[in-house]
Design a protein around this nucleic acid. Structure first.
Lengths: 336, 336
DNA sequence: TGCTAAACTGAAAGTGCTTTCAAAAACGAA
DNA sequence: TTCGTTTTTGAAAGCACTTTCAGTTTAGCA
């Protein structure tokens, strides 16, 4: 029968070992301030009772939680997960806990933003690919909540950015180099871009610009805007490939969407790369598996970096906010 | 200039509104116990100060945290992430926070297991695909820490299982139906299976059994054990396809490994499915994208279910532990 | 042996909230 | 108006730790 006895507190240990609670606390938090005999005694009592300090209580007394929160949209998408992976590894090394706040809607985000900083249930916040109202950003900053933004920036907060336009340019140059003449673009550039910013427009801008400079155009019909979801991406890809004069190269604004393009191509018996070149963006794990040419944005690294910056700031809040720009590289594989 | 003033406490609100802290607390937690005039007053003060109760303090007084922890290995692998997605969606609906504990090693796991239940920093625990020492499981149970195990079971804890042998059988039957005669298996069946259990052996057992019953054998050389990592999987796939008499069908114990097989096949100009059939296991998101035939194990659903069971148990700890078995289905796509 | 400095320990205050208990206020009916 | 209810409210006791401060031991040395 599980003896649902409530777990022992520092008082129980104190009583058992015949010293005061402060000594117990010291044994745990500053072992060299206590006599080694006493130390041994106390440790015995601790072991005997199976005592472990209660986290919430400790956090309250300590005024710190050793916990970092991450706000992320589409907890579902591989690119976010890979970032998260970077964050997780750094945090776990530093013995911080990782709290995930999945954001499904603008309201959701608002709710989190307004309560988290004040609840003080985390020491710092990483906000991934979410656009932030200026006043919210200021609130975070004013409340002294250390924050790192990824793929978005605000003068008062740390941020990690990538040069999406440059990414678009890289793709165009690569495709041009391969001798392509008809291009298409597929990505989520719907006006509001909703709460989640996937800075797709900039990728398109860079792409278009280089194409334009080289004397090629990218007519409206060859730019398909569609949400990230699989269904929509496929539909868009299908329409692109059914054009009277189909493109010979498609730049998809994310690797997952590139996969959708590839799937449709397969169904249509369009050979890749012979009949159609496909380039993605992100370089998620599977990109390598399926030999997709793509723009590498060091997702893991960006997460790691974000966590490191945050931890530094938590340790020393006086540092000025940093704005970091991560380089982008084109990884050529078999789809171009 | 950010006025780094510490955020207001319940005492500040009390002072401003001229009532006692208990009244403030009541306004927040039991509004109908307080006069509507007072209520209005207090709310004004709260708004004016921008007061929000501090989470840790609340948790301490309330003896509950509204927070669920998830222990997961390979935070990296898509299959785990998809489970997590299910967990996250349920939790977020129920207003629970999600704490992730990435497990990289046996020590890591031990550390978590021994401190979490006693720290009481979560109300419940979901343990994914990790093997648990019997004494640890009992400790969790004895300490009254509500726990749901996924892909592992213990009589005193809730668990969600899948019938891996059956999955293996499904694959064999499917392949047999397609007329294949030479089979191979690729998966991580190294003896200790390390701390993370990916119950690959059972999949192999079921697979072998059906093959055997049908009069086919699966010689040692056609069973390649390799860790989950991409490099190793590719190497193994390469060796399999370089056998004097290469298999015409490969069953990979996970979708990601199946992708590795497909990649190698591509490099070797082995056509899929004409020259080689590939079947995976998991049905992760990308499986659909790359048209991989695989065994669907409802990853999202398993996560959702785990979270639901956990929440129920947290609400009513007297319920007996549940053991749930999730069905498996073969999803036929283009690789067979 | 006596003195001082160093090492150790305990009492108590602080952390920010919930909740119980009892007192005060308000209300109604007689 | 007065007494008995019912509704509101405040004081204070948790909750389980950390940490400061002051007091007590101990050790070292003359």
């Amino acid at each position: 029968m599980p003896s649902r006895k409530k777990s022992p507190t520092i008082y129980d240990v104190a009583k058992l070992s015949g010293v005061s609670i402060s000594t117990i606390s010291r044994v745990l938090n500053a072992p060299d301030m206590v006599n080694s005999e006493t130390h041994k005694h106390v440790m015995n009592a601790i072991d005997q009772l199976g005592f472990v300090p209660r986290a919430e209580a400790r956090a309250r007394a300590l005024q710190s939680t050793a916990r970092i929160g991450v706000l992320t949209p589409f907890f579902t998408a591989p690119s976010f997960v890979q970032r998260l992976r970077g964050v997780a590894s750094t945090l776990s090394k530093a013995n911080y806990e990782l709290l995930i706040y999945p954001v499904d809607s603008m309201d959701h985000l608002q709710g989190y933003i307004s309560s988290i900083p004040l609840m003080r249930n985390v020491d710092g916040l990483i906000i991934m690919s979410l656009s932030l109202e200026s006043q919210d950003a200021e609130r975070l900053s004013n409340n002294g909540m250390e924050t790192v933004l990824i793929e978005y920036s605000h003068p008062q907060l740390n941020s990690i950015l990538i040069d999406d336009e440059h990414g678009g340019r890289l793709v165009a140059e690569h495709l041009l180099g391969k001798g392509h003449k008809t291009f298409a673009f597929l990505g989520d550039i719907e006006p509001p871009e909703r709460f989640s910013i996937h800075p797709v427009k900039s990728r398109l801008t860079g792409f278009k610009q280089v194409l334009h400079d080289a004397g090629y155009s990218l007519p409206k019909a060859y730019i398909r805007s569609c949400p990230y979801m699989q269904e929509e991406s496929r539909q868009a890809a299908l329409e692109l490939l059914s054009l009277p004069k189909p493109p010979t190269a498609i730049f998809a604004a994310s690797d997952m969407q590139a996969l959708s393009v590839m799937k449709v191509a397969r169904q249509l018996n369009v050979r890749i790369p012979q009949d159609l070149a496909v380039v993605g963006f992100d370089d998620i794990d599977v990109a390598d598996h399926v030999d997709l040419t793509t723009i590498r944005q060091h997702l893991d690294e960006s997460g790691r970096l974000a966590a490191e910056i945050l931890l530094n700031r938590v340790a020393d809040p006086s540092r000025p906010p940093q704005q970091i720009n991560l380089p982008l590289t084109l990884i050529e594989r078999q789809t171009t």
